[in-house]
């Protein structure tokens, strides 16, 4: 129910400061990315205002024409899409089975998966770096595509399990009574209804891949195969030469669309996350 005027004010008074602190770095990235070199590195200038030569889009132009940024973006998207495809292929059936078909065993396995998701790359990157080198995948995107499902599958299966639990059973039973096989029911009835949930999983899985840092920095050193999360830092910061304007533009570009998607799918994410094994 909508709030009264006074409660509205109170809410803004509490939430507002939080929002300012949490969003400030992004405002700052935007402001910095629009400044000219001259303006940016003049300590006399008020950093909150625009000075000589600002605002300008030069930093964005530089980023796309003089660096491999566009290439890293493409690499990131490629890795993300490939990992999402693998993850869905494996997690859709597993999530469904855990939600429906397997009673107590399902409970145990579900919690097990949750625990696996908590095993961090920090513990695994050293042995994996050797394995990756051994099979000749060092410096190739394939290394990331191979390794990322290790954390995306537990995560996606967990979320999907939550979504599938919320679909009424009767729907499937009706289809089975009508003569459809369990597998057909799954593909033609259950998956289509779960589409919003599946889309949520796609978005959050993709963003996990964009976020990943340790594997990307341990396995990939050639600038051709870098992804955004490592490329910007390792290539655009050279010794004492900083391209701050371009750097800030580079960090802002992936953040904004991801945040929009998060906001749109947040409620579904919550539903899936808590619909898992906690109830």
């Amino acid at each position: 129910m909508p709030l009264r005027r006074r409660d509205n004010m109170l809410t803004w008074l509490v939430v507002g400061p939080f929002a300012i602190v949490l969003a400030f770095p992004f405002y700052w990235m935007l402001q910095t990315s629009l400044k000219s070199e001259l303006d940016l590195y003049n300590t006399e200038n008020n950093p909150f205002a625009f000075g000589e030569g600002s605002p300008t889009l030069d930093n964005y132009r530089f980023l796309f024409s003089d660096t491999q940024y566009a290439h890293w973006l493409l690499n990131t998207v490629l890795v993300g899409l490939a990992v999402v495809a693998i993850t869905l292929a494996v997690s859709l059936p597993a999530g469904y089975a855990l939600a429906r078909l397997s009673g107590r065993w399902g409970q145990t396995l579900g919690v097990g998966l949750f625990l696996v998701y908590l095993v961090p790359p920090t513990l695994l990157f050293l042995p994996l770096s050797r394995v990756v080198a051994e099979v000749g995948l060092q410096d190739r995107l394939a290394a990331l595509i191979l390794v990322y499902p290790g954390f995306t599958i537990p995560f996606a299966t967990w979320l999907l399990m939550g979504f599938f639990k919320s679909i009424p059973r009767e729907l499937e039973d009706a289809a089975v009574v009508d003569g459809a096989s369990r597998l057909r029911t799954l593909v033609w009835i259950v998956f289509p209804i779960s589409l919003p949930g599946i889309l949520t999983v796609v978005i959050f899985t993709f963003s996990l891949c964009v976020n990943e840092f340790i594997y990307a920095i341990a396995f990939i050193t050639s600038s051709d195969s870098k992804v955004v999360s490592t490329g910007i830092y390792t290539e655009l910061i050279r010794g004492d030469v900083f391209y701050w304007g371009a750097l800030m533009a580079a960090t802002l570009i992936p953040a904004v669309p991801l945040a929009l998607l998060y906001n749109t799918f947040l409620d579904r994410f919550i539903a899936g996350f808590t619909g898992g094994a906690f109830r």
């Binding site: 939430v15 939080f18 929002a19 300012i20 949490l22 969003a23 770095p25 992004f26 963003s207 964009v210 976020n211 840092f213 955004v228 999360s229 490592t230 910007i232 830092y233 580079a250 960090t251 992936p254 953040a255 991801l258 945040a259 998607l261 998060y262 906001n263 947040l266």
Partner: peptide
Amino acid sequence: LVLLPWAAPVALS
């Protein structure tokens, strides 16, 4: 606004 820090890749922010 509140979600921004979570959505942005950590290495970038």
